Simulated assay, not measured.
Amino acid sequence: MERRDTTNIGFLVFPGFPMACLTSAIEPLRAANEISDREAFSWRVLSENGEAVTASANVVFQPDCSLRDVENLDYLFLLSDPESAFAVPASGNGHLRYLARHGVQIGAVSGGVFPLAASGLLLGHTCSVHWCYRAAFEKAFPEIAVSDDVLVLDRRRLTASGAAAMFDLMLGMIEDTLDSVVMTEVACWFQHPMVRTEGVGQSVPAFKTAGVTRDLPPPLAKAIAVFSDNLEEPVSIGDVAEQAEVSPRKLERQFKKYLGQSPLNYYRMLRMNAARQQVLYSRNSLSDVALSVGYNSSSTLSKHYRRAFGLSPSEERNQKSNRFKIERGQPIPVA
């Protein structure tokens, strides 16, 4: 594409998109323009058809234009929740592919990886997926490579796991477009203490504690990683202890000391959280959800699910569906 003095960025928003991801992108760009005293960056908010879009916080955004009418973009980022899709997929996906063919770098933040993956533009690429969506994403798009890094810049596909990661991605863009001095000043304006680049892993909560997994002793962190990698085909505590290079008894003591529960209970909760991602963010049948987290039947899954979350998978899915309809003013069927 012809090089311009201003880098033009589009943000394609879908209903329910996380507002923090948009502000985390635009605010550092605005600050960079002000600090450098030039219009180094311009941005436009787009929607599929140019109509207003309501964010997850129920704030309404009026886009600058529709996706089909946008011109002269250097970058386009998709912002959405995990269930978002184009109202007219053939047209929306086709236009994304058209832009990519004509030199626009395409990216996504948070749940935006779902509609981006559905367009086919992530095939053959690795992408960053927020840990709370990973199980649902891998089930929906098993052919796409997923990374736990906060940022993945794979050729002309740029993905960020969440709002803070999007801020980091914009800081990198500011450094490339202007210089590291401006980038550092922007980071300091917003008291952004650490600029993260590729290769930095996401912080994942150690469930039922106030800590994160990277703060745990190495054998415990290794055990959690083994559990996380074996949700569909359950592993025994003895095998996990062997891979963590500790005895089963020592592993049990470490789980009780640092996580307040047994390895078995922790493992079950990991599987329940993975199941919940699919219940909330996919249309997979409950039988398929059960099999994906190591249960032979949906009834067994439902029993453990209710114990963990206080309601069955079908009840939670119905509740979410009804909330979605209320937010969009749609009628709720009466039984």
Rank of each mutant, 00 (worst) to 15 (best):
R4M: 12
V13L: 10
T23L: 06
S24G: 04
A25R: 03
A25F: 00
A31C: 04
S36W: 12
F41E: 09
W43E: 13
V45F: 06
G50F: 06
E51R: 10
N58P: 00
D64P: 01
C65S: 12
L67C: 02
D69I: 10
E71F: 04
L73T: 00
Y75V: 04
L76M: 02
L79K: 00
D81P: 03
P82T: 03
V88P: 00
P89G: 01
A90T: 04
R97Q: 15
R97K: 11
Y98G: 12
L99M: 08
R101K: 14
I106G: 08
G112P: 01
L123E: 15
G124N: 07
T126P: 04
C127Y: 04
C127K: 13
R134S: 13
F141S: 12
S147D: 04
D149T: 12
L151I: 10
L158G: 06
T159P: 06
S161V: 15
A163M: 10
M170D: 07
M173L: 15
A187P: 00
P193Q: 05
S203C: 03
V204Y: 02
V204N: 04
P205E: 01
A206Y: 10
A210N: 13
T213S: 07
D215P: 13
P218A: 11
P218V: 11
P218N: 06
F227R: 03
E233H: 05
S236T: 15
I237L: 09
D239S: 11
Q243D: 10
P248R: 05
P248F: 01
F255I: 15
K257R: 15
S262P: 15
P263N: 07
N265A: 15
Y267P: 14
M269S: 14
N273L: 14
V279F: 06
Y281C: 15
S287D: 08
V289N: 06
T300E: 12
A308N: 02
L311G: 00
S312G: 10
E315H: 05
R317F: 00
N318I: 00
N318W: 00
K320G: 00
K325Y: 03
E327I: 02
R328T: 09
I332V: 12
